[in-house]
Design a protein around this nucleic acid. Sequence first.
DNA 1: ACTGGGTAAACAG
DNA 2: CTGTTTACCCAGT
Length: 172
Amino acid sequence: MIRGRLHPAVIRTSAGDFRAVFSSRGLAQLQFPSSPPPAPDDDIEQSASAQIAAWKRLTQEALESSLNGRVPAHLPPLDLSQGTEFQQAVWLAMAAIPVGHTKSYGEIAQTIGRPKANRAVGQACGANPIPVLIPCHRVLAANRKIGGFSAGLDWKHRLLAREGVELRAQAV
DNA sequence: ACTGGGTAAACAG
DNA sequence: CTGTTTACCCAGT
C-alpha cells in the first residue's frame, strides 16, 4: 500500500462530497460520494500541512471542472505509487484521453505496448485509485459499448453524457 | 488456479 | 443488423 501517513479529506463539489486521501507525494485516492460519511476529525483541516491544504484545494477545483466536462486548469500531484508498473502505464494512458473522446480497452493495451492485454487493462481500470481525474470512464469496450465500471455504471454514464459522448446499447 | 470494467470470430435470430 | 456462444489473452490476487 502507500507508505507514510495518509491524510483523508472531504472534497465538496456540486455533485456531492467526494473523499480524497493524500499521501506525502500527492493525491493518492479519490472516492465517489457514498455511504460512509467521513468523520470530521479525519479531515485535514485541523492537522495537515499547508502543502496538503493546497493540494486539497487543487483537487477540489480540478474535480469541479472535470464534473462539468471542462479540462482542469491544474491537477494536484498524483501519487500512483500504489500501483504496479503495468497499472501505472494504463492510468497514464487513460489520462491522455482528451475530453469528449473515448478509447477502447484494446486501444489502451496497444498504447502501452501490450496489444493483447486488453483484459488486463480492464482490470487496471477497475483498480484506478483516482476516478474522474484519471478518466477511466472514457475507456469503453470495443465498438462504443459502455463496458463496465466498478464505481457504478451510472457514474460512468453521467460523466460521459456531460462530455457529450454518444454511447451504444449494451447487453452485459 | 481463478477472476475480470475484454475481444473477435462464428452462428443464430 | 443485434444477441449468444466460444475460445483466447493477461496482470493481479
